[in-house]
Amino acid sequence: MRAQFVLQEIWIGLRRNLTMTISLVITVAIAMALLGTGLLIKLQVDSSKSYWHDRIEVSIFLCAKTSSNANCNKTDVTEQQKQEIQNDLKGLSVVKEVKYESKEEAFERFKESFSNSPGFVNSTKVGDIPDSFRVRLKDPEKFEEVTKLLANRAGVDQVVNEKEILDRFFKILNGLQWAAIMIAVIQVVAAVLLVANTVRLSAFNRRRETGIMRLVGASNLYIQLPFILEGAIAGLIGGGFAAILLVGSKVVLIDQLQESLQFTSQLGWGSVFGVIVFSICVGVLLCAAASFLSLRRYLRI
């Protein structure tokens, strides 16, 4: 009896202000989808960050005849300079590994990574990429010691820190993530206010019923439960739509990002599912809490 009665009351309530319910569901769905997308991007960024953290390298490009750097004087780096640089690098405590890459090896690697665009490869020839040392650091934050060591060193053309490039890229992703979360927060505020209003309207519509319930001694829980569940169910439906949107954003946004940016760490469906469950829970709890709080002011004993 109880369950059936409560369900019936909820159904009446949701149907009576259908337009409010629809706008509520849409708002919740968008809020939760944005929140979830923000979280997905964050997960992706975090996992790629830790992946790259271990693989980040500082490249030290050495002088070649073609380099435009005045430091090089249009001459190739000498064997002796190479040896000195290598020894100095290995002497640094922050350095984990030093690898030498010749022009030929560099060209091979280049050909391999751009095998999809043959035009690009054909217009490049051996020697366009100079000899280099690739240095892996124990802590990528301490790349400055390398830069300091090799500043204005004879035979060194350029020191390129991959971290700087990646940082710029992660900054963009971070911005994207925060933008999504900020918009989500604004939407969540709107959703909460909308829930409060919907429930208040619902309570007003049913003030006869609630008045009689109070008089005949229905417990507060019994009076309030249909309204709270009404909010929670709207939240749940909104969360369901958000789940669909999130699956969409995983396919459209995250997978595309992964493909075009060659993230090596794949964000699995497992974490997408986790995010979906999390955002549905947040949606339901927020809606229920908003209903409860707005009722406290509206339905007193």
Binding site: M1, R2, F5, E209, I212, M213, V216, G217, A218, S219, Y222, I223
Partner: peptide, 14 residues
């Protein structure tokens, strides 16, 4: 019946 439903009385009693 409403008065009994909302205080949780069983259907058969009602």
């Amino acid at each position: 019946a409403f008065a009994l439903e909302v205080i949780g009385k069983p259907r058969r009693f009602i």
